[in-house]
Simulated scan of single mutants.
Amino acid sequence: MYGIVNKAIQDLVTETFGEDKWEAVKEKSGVDVDFFLSNEPYEDSITYELVGAASEVLGISAGDVLQAFGEWWVLKTGKEKYGGLMESGGNNLKEFLVNLPLFHNRIMLMYPKLTPPEFKVSDIEESSIHVHYHSEREGLQEFVRGLMSGLGKMYEVDVNVELLQSRSDGSSHEIFKVSW
């Protein structure tokens, strides 16, 4: 993953829990990086180590860390680093989710070494949509749930994100039903 992901985890922990908690997370994770360069790729294992250490240090589940990180990614990192791109995604949550499959195509122009997930949508209704999440990286479904929740907050809409199928249940990918 690119350094911007790890930097966002650092920002989430630092701004929400304090610099001392971030130092504890770094120490517990064994990650020996003084600062993350946003445009540089890092091993995925670093991100997983940071999430695991944050879970232990903060006393919350890794799923809760990932969900909080997903919301943070949309509301802080996305808006601050990719404001124009986020705004061009749609005028409301439904439009953004319908356009989501094209979103990473634009991101790949900025991060050419990116191995992005793939999103597809189906079952588009007036107040719900199914979001299909395909990724070679496992264990990030709660991050995606947080992203969907963060998008709801960005558009000031109450959302419910229900996991309909998961790779942990033997499926080929995750499907979320996002309702508003």
Score class of each variant (00 low, 15 high):
98 V>E: 10
76 K>E: 09
174 E>I: 06
50 L>K: 02
99 N>P: 01
47 T>V: 11
133 Y>P: 01
66 L>W: 04
11 D>H: 10
52 G>L: 09
141 Q>M: 13
18 G>H: 07
153 K>A: 06
52 G>V: 08
157 V>M: 10
164 L>W: 02
152 G>M: 06
115 T>I: 13
54 A>R: 00
22 W>Q: 00
142 E>F: 13
82 Y>R: 13
139 G>N: 04
136 E>H: 15
165 Q>W: 08
59 G>E: 05
85 L>C: 13
62 A>H: 04
180 W>G: 02
64 D>P: 05
98 V>F: 07
53 A>M: 03
150 G>K: 00
31 V>N: 01
37 L>T: 15
144 V>M: 06
117 P>A: 10
53 A>V: 01
163 L>F: 11
73 W>K: 07
27 E>Q: 14
90 G>A: 02
144 V>H: 02
107 I>Y: 09
91 N>E: 15
126 E>K: 13
31 V>K: 01
56 E>F: 04
138 E>T: 12
47 T>W: 07
139 G>K: 03
123 D>A: 10
155 Y>R: 05
48 Y>M: 12
43 E>F: 12
133 Y>N: 03
101 P>C: 06
56 E>W: 06
16 T>C: 07
174 E>K: 04
38 S>E: 15
65 V>L: 03
173 H>S: 06
145 R>Q: 08
168 S>C: 12
178 V>L: 00
22 W>A: 01
